[in-house]
Design a protein around this nucleic acid. Sequence first.
DNA 1: CTTTCAGACCTTTTT
DNA 2: GGTCTGAAAG
Length: 682
Amino acid sequence: MINNQPPDTPSTDLTKPEQPEQAPARKTFVLRRKADAEATPHFRIRYADELNATQLAAVEQTEGPVLVIAGAGTGKTRTLVYRVARLIEMGIKPEQILLLTFTRKSAQEMLRRAAALVGSRAEQVNGGTFHSFANLTLRKYAQLLNYQSTFTILDQGDCEDVMNLLRARMGFDTKGRRFPRKQTLASMISASINRMTPIREIIEEDYPQYRRDVEEIEKLARSYQEYKRMHNLMDYDDLLVNMALLLQKHPELRERLGETHRYIMVDEYQDTNKLQHEVVRLLAERHQNVMVVGDDSQSIYSFRGANFRNIMDFPRGFPGTTVITLEENYRSVQPILNFTNEVLSHAIEKYEKHLYTRRPGGALPMVVSTADEHLQSEFIVQQILELREQGVELNEIAVLFRSSFLSFDLEIELTKANIPYVKMGGFKFIETAHVKDLIAHLRVVHNPRDVVSWNRILLLLEGVGPRTAQRVVDEIADGRLEITRQGAESARKIGNAAVGELFDMLLTLLPEKMSVPEKVDQLIRYYKPIMRGKYDDYIKREKDLEMFSEIAGRYRSLNSFLADMALEPPTESVTGIEDGKEDEQLILSTIHSAKGLEWNTVFVIWALDGRFPSTWAAGSLDQMEEERRLMYVATTRAKDRLIITYPINIFDRESGMVLSKPSRFIADIPEEIAEKWVVSQE
DNA sequence: CTTTCAGACCTTTTT
DNA sequence: GGTCTGAAAG
């Protein structure tokens, strides 16, 4: 039902280097020294035939630190897949291989492909994101850090809730003074952790307007840390911090984990941060068997503390690193590569790469300006219909955009034209208020000390406001109130009848032997009336509850369900999810969510200066450069056809100006690199 | 104490 | 266009 597998059809004819015509092999035997024959394992996969020279080098270098700089479409995934296969063929136990990727889906996909090569053993490989790896490890060793293994993972919204609570509690919200809002506080603290930089410096650099409040913010950051520790909570950053801490403080464990994960591979290394680097460093301390793969030109997550310099500094952290550069592109036709090279050529700072392809022919990319936004949508719809008539499948077409909201108008037009689509990125199912409500209930059952969730579910009740909620939460935090019969009674006294009912309901969810789907259905029965009272559009939301119940049905333990919902939630946005049953769907995606994927035809819409790059990047050179890399990522997704569109005469509220210029990244592209078209109302 | 309502504010990308 | 905040009514 959640069908968002990237249309990854490895076109074998293209990915395989062309082999010169050879006479059929005559040799029927090989002569080898006995010692060599015994030392060299027998490989069934003919690596040299399946990979090009540089890919092969990366695959065969199985020991020691390796850095692979892989330009877009150069077969980075293929290289990782074959390396996993190679290690397994060498007799390495699959459990000893650790494959860290940017999403769990891409790890699964790689392991699936490795399994196609060497059999199902490959499925035993440990694969996932840094966060999910940290989560699993920390659940095991939580006690070493004075955590309980039932700790709850706070997502960004939860962190902001805590921030709000603490800010009020510490009296920083008094009027007349502008103290940073909760999101700002959360992102300042997170930036400080991820960049391993004191909060003072973060404020100095990125939030100079709050320079006067440094002391208070520091104080708040400290109580935030205490609060989480006291209530058995970890946010996304804590997963990484604590993972690093675990390895630093416990040499014997570090040794053991290093032994368990003898071969480490990290994908998308340009989007890792210092903390993640530290985790890798510690894990690989003894054996140094670590290969990282990435492309500095595709670093697009600096807002999360990622720094593309991380990848370039790798050899310094791992002396003796072998550096391998993949330059042959197997994805795009030459005209598209010319275009993307042109986009990148104006980058201020980059490491030279010379992408080339042997794919012949291909049409010039098109740059199309339309009179307004609506015409842009109509143009896209018409193009898609035409492509479909030409036999291009819908899931081979993607429409990419800088920000999620930029696709709203197009979505309306697509629906009118009856074109099915899924949207990736932007506001997600899991982030909708009603889904968060359900999760909060389950979290409380799983971790009764999770006061953030307690607070949330108490506030849903009629007649309960911040005050009452706080009182109940305090009792719970002090251990005086528990989910029991008597608990329900005292809860009823502190609050009102509704609070008592909440406790009664939670009580029925406690038994271990009750299955996850049973729990969820019970909960939904309880929650439905609450939702009706709270949201006018409850009918729309009820569908999501069914969806939620269906997803929960796939899990056996509450623990893994909650962890997945926090770390790897369904990636589609709210819109596409309900009727996502068609097998052929157009892909709409933010550029960030399109990372690592490829399509036959790619549209990049809203390539309008002021939207992409957006006005708020204008102030900083670094940010502007990141926007440029985003354009590079977007355009390198295309295999055969690339169409870039922008509407003109758009009024921008923020600047009060009319935007009418194409994105600066494509404005000056010469005619021989891209055809330019204008669409206007007839 | 809770709920409601009006005005201010700001608008990205995600584990 | 939606969220967030503060102040006044219930």
